[in-house]
Nucleic acid binder design. Structure first.
Lengths: 329, 329
DNA sequence: TTGAAAGCGCTACCAG
DNA sequence: CTGGTAGCGCTTTCAA
């Protein structure tokens, strides 16, 4: 038999409403009784029934993270940071790896106060938007729920600008151009615009499609590039994982980073510094990203109308050891 | 305002207890009324209040997976498989990336029917065991809750045996010897025993400690090995990630797999076949592992006493293209 | 086949 | 400061 506040009440000899107050640390209960109640509760091994609490209260202090594909280093890091941030704010976060729709159903049934969506695919429409506050991390535009996004174009501009200032003219871009993922497309556009702006030659040659987001995709793409006629002096990789593959391919081809080839990666996470070669990277620092997402969902919970539909965060470039002035040949 | 069965009741013109029955597909309700109720419920966008249901019923059909560290390819694959398996069985799975203890608290509060623990560290003791059925995936022995484990020794024996039959004598073992993780220790023991059994020379030389479980750890360790005086003809890597790093290091050192060096990896997941070089691997196939874990927790939920404390699964060796007969020099 | 009513365990309000 | 009581939304007897 599980023990309830009524059991405590009879054990202590007070009414169970008093027990409830005491357990919630209400100032309406004398210290002495409160202490006694708490002690007995502990002795009895009392565990509050959350379902009952939730039935009465409005909030669950629970946030769901819908993340169908458990991959992407940068996402893992972000998820962990977001979790920390919620903990600080007195919330718990749980995660579902089902489809967005299923995850949403689960979270709704369990009365999560809000949900965050991590999803690469921008095409899917989500129903049931009305019932629960949602914030999405970078899933395209034109959605009817708030999105925290990154100014990818600016990020790529910053990367190209940085390399251009180091004298690089032959810059390659390795990323995933799947039309399904708006974020990748934005990165590409940003690169394209920046190249034009700095009047750098730009053709099909410096664009390599990974057609995937794993490090191996990046590896294969870079390998292909380095076997082609066009050997760049700098490469921009569009994610932590992809860049890991790029670095690998470069080294296998016996080029030295950054002497022969400079590398800049997207994803501004501290882990970039722990790679075999600490990579200079652009992107919104995870901490900033996490804080913004958490604050947004918290605001949405308090007042749904109050939250802007799209928030675009500005990226930063963090220098590490993967770039050098271009060599004069 | 969220809509309840009472709203449906008034809308349809029946009592709300009838609505409840209809929604639960009870045979006690006339087909006709049932259909009408279900239709109206849908029209109204009714969503059952889980807290209320849970308060009355005993089970939540919810399983928690406590997984503090979101990493390890093999674990991701396993988690995904387990999730599928639960879905098939009418359960939902959610995941927490907090500490085991915190995760447990969360799951308990949300009335999960059971929890699965993924944890590398075998030292931590978990409280609150009494309240909720727990199954752990390979967290050491001597715990007071059921564990589904792998016969790591047998796995390593199978790997060594396989290589020995191909004529290999110089076999290196690259893994994490952190005393914190019993599973890694078991793998090491298995290797040691097998080497002795096949009378293969065995010294500090063929043992490389990665001191970590990421691919980069494997990479560094293998690199170190290949720069040493002892160049093996075969290498055993203790996980998908570590082996990925090993393969990388081998190729960077201009050895060819499997011509120069054969590789066998632990972790029997289909993804081993998608690597740059499809790796022959040993381990319990994920499907088997997932099914076993799910069945175990389901049994534990029905009858706590019924479940064996330790279940050790037998590994299988799956041949791919990373091993060859040792070359005669 | 349907309805009434008794809770599940808890919070919150109102009296005292 | 403490106790009584009305629900939260739902399932489940028990009657009708």
């Amino acid at each position: 038999m599980t023990i309830t506040i009524k059991d405590i009440a009879t054990a202590v000899g007070v009414s169970y409403s008093t027990v409830s107050k005491a357990l919630n640390d209400s100032p309406l209960v004398k210290q002495e009784t409160k202490a006694k109640i708490i002690k007995i509760a502990k002795d009895l091994g009392y565990e509050p029934n959350f379902a009952a609490q939730r039935l009465v209260k409005k909030e669950s202090k629970l946030i769901g993270l819908a993340w169908p594909t458990l991959d992407r280093m940068a996402h893992s890091v972000l998820a962990t940071k977001i979790n920390e941030e919620f903990t600080k704010n007195g919330y718990s976060m749980i995660l579902s790896i089902n489809s967005i729709q299923t995850s949403l159903d689960i979270f709704k049934r369990y009365q999560a106060d809000g949900v965050i969506i991590f999803d690469e695919e921008s095409t899917k429409t989500v129903h049931a938007l009305t019932t629960i506050p949602i914030v999405s991390y970078g899933v395209g535009k034109g959605k009817d729920f708030p999105i925290v996004d990154v100014n990818y174009q600016k990020a790529m501009y910053a990367a190209v600008e940085y390399l251009a200032k180091l004298g690089h003219e032959k810059i390659a871009f390795i990323g995933d151009f799947s039309p399904i993922d708006d974020r990748q497309i934005e990165k590409y556009r940003g690169f394209q615009n920046a190249m034009q702006h700095f009047e750098l030659s730009f053709s099909g040659d410096n664009l390599i499609n990974t057609a995937g987001l794993s490090w191996y995709d990046g590896y294969i793409a870079a390998k292909r590039l380095l076997q082609s006629a066009f050997i760049p002096t700098a490469i921009i990789g569009t994610s932590y994982d992809i860049s890991a593959g790029i670095v690998r391919a470069i080294r296998e081809a016996n080029f030295i980073i950054p002497k022969d080839i400079s590398v800049v990666s997207y994803d501004n996470i501290p882990q970039m510094g722990n790679m075999e070669i600490p990579l200079t990277s652009v992107g919104v620092p995870v901490d900033v990203m996490a804080k913004q997402i958490v604050q947004t969902i918290l605001r949405a919970i308090q007042n749904r109308q109050d939250v802007p539909l799209i928030q675009t965060l500005d990226p930063q470039l963090t220098e590490r050891n993967s770039c050098a002035h271009v060599r004069n040949i």
